[in-house]
């Protein structure tokens, strides 16, 4: 794929991810457990990994997180988002490249969501300097990650089916 075309599509993906993250911030999930959200922006990260590569996905994630924190959110929220975004992208990128034989897009998305949630929990432990009680959140964050990750993975699966041929040709 030519450079200009790639940059254009990556920009569109970034803006899509940004819009998705703004939309989901309008619908907080009132479970009383911090950090549980839909993770819709993950759809665009997955798309980028499959259509382009890991490096492009990293660019999309970093651009999305930086822009999202420009539109609202504090410095600390930025660190949480960037930590979650980078670790989930790394896990998904590695799984797609090496273990694509064993995992579908849905499984890769679930693993990304788990990595995202546990990564953020890890950051929270460092910030709050409180290991024991935050560990109690881990089961809930894992269950949420599996459900939300499966959901976004399913969306990415169908979106890829529809878009892959149009974009790559």
């Amino acid at each position: 794929m030519k450079g200009t075309r790639k940059i254009t599509i990556l920009s569109v993906f970034t803006s899509q991810a940004l819009v998705l993250s703004i939309i989901e911030s309008m619908f907080p999930i009132p479970l009383g457990i911090p950090g549980i959200k839909l993770g819709l922006a993950n759809i665009m990260t997955l798309m980028t990994i499959v259509i382009f590569d890991f490096k492009s996905a990293l660019m999309v994630v970093v651009a999305r997180v930086v822009l999202a924190s420009v539109y609202g959110g504090s410095m600390l929220v930025f660190w949480f988002s960037i930590a979650g975004g980078l670790i989930s992208t790394a896990v998904m990128g590695l799984m797609y490249k090496r273990y694509e034989k064993y995992f579908s897009i849905i499984g890769i998305s679930v693993a990304g969501a788990l990595a995202h949630n546990l990564g953020q929990l890890f950051v929270a432990v460092i910030v709050m300097k409180e290991l024991s009680v935050l560990l109690l959140y881990a089961p809930f964050l894992m269950a949420a990650g599996a459900i939300m990750g499966g959901f976004t993975g399913l969306i990415a699966h169908f979106l890829l089916k529809a878009l892959k041929r149009i974009i790559t040709t």
Partner: peptide, 19 residues
Amino acid sequence: MLKKGDIILLVITALLSIS
């Protein structure tokens, strides 16, 4: 649509979060 690894991942996640 789901592959072998997906199922294993989901089962392990479910077991870990339930326990």
